[in-house]
Amino acid sequence: MNAGMAAPLLAVDGLTVRFKLPQGWVTAVDKVAFSIQPGEIVGIVGESGSGKSQILLSIMGLLASNGRASGSVRFRGNEILNRPADELDGIRGSTLSMIFQDPMTSLNPYMRVSQQLTEVLTTHQGMSETQAFNTATAMLDRVRIPDARRRIGLYPHEFSGGMRQRVMIAMALLCRPALLLADEPTTALDVTVQAQILELIAELGRDLGTSVAIVTHDLGVIARLCDRVIVLYGGRIMEEGKVDDIFHDTRHPYTGGLLAATPRLDAATHGELVTIPGQPRAAMGDLPGCPFAPRCALKADICTAEMPPIVTGPSGHRLACHLREVRS
């Protein structure tokens, strides 16, 4: 994207995800392009139907069976989109791993945590059982599960929600992946536990040099954790940039609307919140124009006629809007 930057760890280009439904094909992600640098924490923010989770799933090769992805996803220079499962299994869970919103449905309820964790290491790194057990215990310690040596022998249901999410993070980080994909990892947790988990993700990213792509609907989570943020609407990137540029030099009317609609903990407001009229539209694709146009206060004729191109500013701020210009 920007000349002079190191080779990206992940380069997504023209990524389109379509699903076959009874009424025909619908587009969930529409020609999305972005990249992630080594060591970077990138947030992907959007409302329901923005396609944010589908981007992560297609990178991992985990789309639902009625989904088709096209375009390109290069991980460390190698194309990984739509590769056969046996080929992907060489990187999934080792250099590229993912955590989900609900740890209970992602952990096997019939297997002890020890078994689920050591399996990763014996499979990907050829460790012996004892070696794997010790490494796994050390990782549980690392994600601050108290009394790890005893608790590694428990089943997932014997952990609380926050502890289960820690188990999943430990599992994802066992092979020290280069990139961790996190799909709403704290949405189901209480704020005090969320704060612990966010701190943990930031710390582990720093210490292990792992890049993180985190999907969330919470702009606060982005502001606390991320270096860069991608704002999605209706399957398209609306705006992207460094967190400071996006929050303090907001250019896209959708980003501005989201920020204005979020009540702030540190502001004594009591009046009417600024709202975005209408409701989030699931991406349908194939329509001309900007997907946000029907709800946009600035809407002009051109907005419903053609999709604005993404324009990149001098410091890498990217914007797709006919009516606004990037400055940073």
Binding site: S160, G162, D190, G220, A223, R224, F247, T262, L265
Partner: peptide, 22 residues
């Protein structure tokens, strides 16, 4: 614990992390 949608504010905040769960 509540993150505020403002990166500058977030960087300047003192964090009081609770241990453990309810």
């Amino acid at each position: 614990a509540v993150p505020i949608a403002d990166p500058r504010t977030e960087r300047g905040r003192e964090r009081l992390l609770l241990e453990g769960d309810l």
